[in-house]
């Protein structure tokens, strides 16, 4: 039954968690700062890119995904791809009306 846990009882030490937190705060600062610049549409994509980075940190470390097996990562990917398709395919309608 090794398909699920590579090392699920992995202990992440406090300093590492705090480091992640510091990065998250820095990214929050960055995204607020970027939003003050005048970038036009790039705003949307820029802010989303930063949000994705933050999400990645939370999932990988706070949620221990880095230490999980292939199964959970694959299923998470499946979910995100599904959501992306639901949103993306709707734009086959909206973008060409």
């Amino acid at each position: 039954m090794a398909d699920i846990e590579k090392d699920s009882h992995h202990i992440i030490r406090y300093p590492k968690l705090v480091m992640v937190w510091v990065f998250l705060l820095l990214l929050t600062g960055l995204t607020v700062w970027v939003s003050r610049l005048d970038l036009g549409v790039l705003h949307v994509w820029g802010s989303l890119a930063i949000a994705v980075m933050k999400a990645f940190l939370v999932i990988a470390f706070f949620m221990h995904m880095r230490y999980e097996g292939r199964l959970l990562r694959g299923l998470l990917l499946l979910t995100l791809v599904t959501l992306a398709i639901f949103i993306g395919f709707t734009f086959f309608d909206l973008s060409y009306r």
Binding site: F89, F92, D93, L94, Y96, R97
Partner: peptide, 10 residues
């Protein structure tokens, strides 16, 4: 009333 493109794809 969805777009023709959407009709085609779906």
């Amino acid at each position: 009333g969805i777009s023709d493109m959407a009709v085609l794809v779906f």
